[in-house]
């Protein structure tokens, strides 16, 4: 190695990022009933327990519902906004751009508190609707950025050509623009669904008795009991995330998805 310091720092960095995840998986397969290391033996009992634990299953379904609906809403609003920002010449364009493309630094816990106070207590909205409002707002920038990144690569001349050849604006949009945008929309959707599903800070204060999200339910469980069931549940979430990540890598490419956010 020509750069010993760089190499050492890189090793430390990767250890901190990855080793805890390995430990989660390793403890999930223990046959003992405490979070000890090395594990007592090999068994799948905690996977059985996690999959049979109603609060986790119910919360997983709730989280999935919320993620799908919030993502759909965010795309429904976000894609037209992206088109308007990139193609249109609307006044106040830079303001819209600034609003959606400013760095994603939002104290989500604070937004959650505000939503709780204003919508749930103030307007008496139920907690699913309030969560939906919050998650949709949080996902909007993802939708605008990631679809915007793929739109920026597309040639506006293609649309003009379609129009010149006699296609109506609507037809030009559905036959030319939308197919160009499809990978962008796909990756924006994937990313925002994963982000919504995993969200804690925004959702934390918006939990209800009938509608609870999975990450918050898991947090509560960890606080009450110190057994490996959460490790098993975490491993299942990890496995699902790996599958999604592979799909993302194969279809659009990681770097593109996340590159869209950080440019």
């Amino acid at each position: 190695m020509k750069r010993p310091i760089t190499a050492a720092l890189a090793v430390i960095g990767y250890v901190i990022m990855i080793v805890p995840i390995i430990f989660v998986v390793a403890t999930a397969f223990t046959s003992g009933s405490t979070l000890r290391f090395p594990p007592d033996g090999f068994s799948l009992r905690w996977f059985d327990e996690a999959l049979g634990y109603e609060p986790f299953i119910g919360a997983a379904i709730s989280s999935l519902e919320l993620a799908v609906v919030a993502t759909a809403l965010a795309l429904l609003v976000g894609v037209p906004v992206t088109l308007a920002v990139h193609r249109g010449k609307l006044p106040g364009k830079s303001l819209v751009e600034g609003l959606f493309l400013s760095p994603l630094i939002v104290p989500e816990l604070v937004v959650g508190l505000a939503l709780f106070q204003q919508l749930m207590v103030g307007l008496d909205l139920d907690n699913f609707s309030t969560l939906l409002v919050g998650h949709t707002a949080l996902m909007l920038p993802y939708a605008v950025r990631v679809t915007g990144a793929s739109l920026a690569l597309a040639d506006p001349a293609l649309e003009e050509a379609a129009r010149g050849l006699g296609a109506s604006p609507l037809r030009a949009f559905f036959n030319v623009t939308l197919p160009i945008l499809r990978p962008g929309i796909f990756s924006a959707g994937l990313l925002s669904m994963v982000t919504s599903f995993n969200n804690v800070p925004l959702s934390l204060l918006l939990q209800g008795r009938d509608f609870r999200t999975l990450p918050v339910t898991m947090l509560d469980y960890v606080q009450q009991s110190y057994d490996p069931m959460v490790a098993a549940a975490s491993t299942l979430v990890l496995a699902a995330t790996v599958v999604i990540a592979v799909i993302a890598e194969r279809t659009v490419g990681f770097a593109k998805i996340f590159g869209g956010i950080n440019q």
Binding site: Y14, M17, A231, A245
Partner: peptide, 19 residues
């Protein structure tokens, strides 16, 4: 390095409890 960004913070943090 990028993959952990997609993974739940609860899952990632839980590992430290084990360690």
């Amino acid at each position: 390095a990028i993959f952990p960004l997609m993974l739940s913070n609860v899952v990632r943090t839980f590992g430290w409890l084990v360690i």
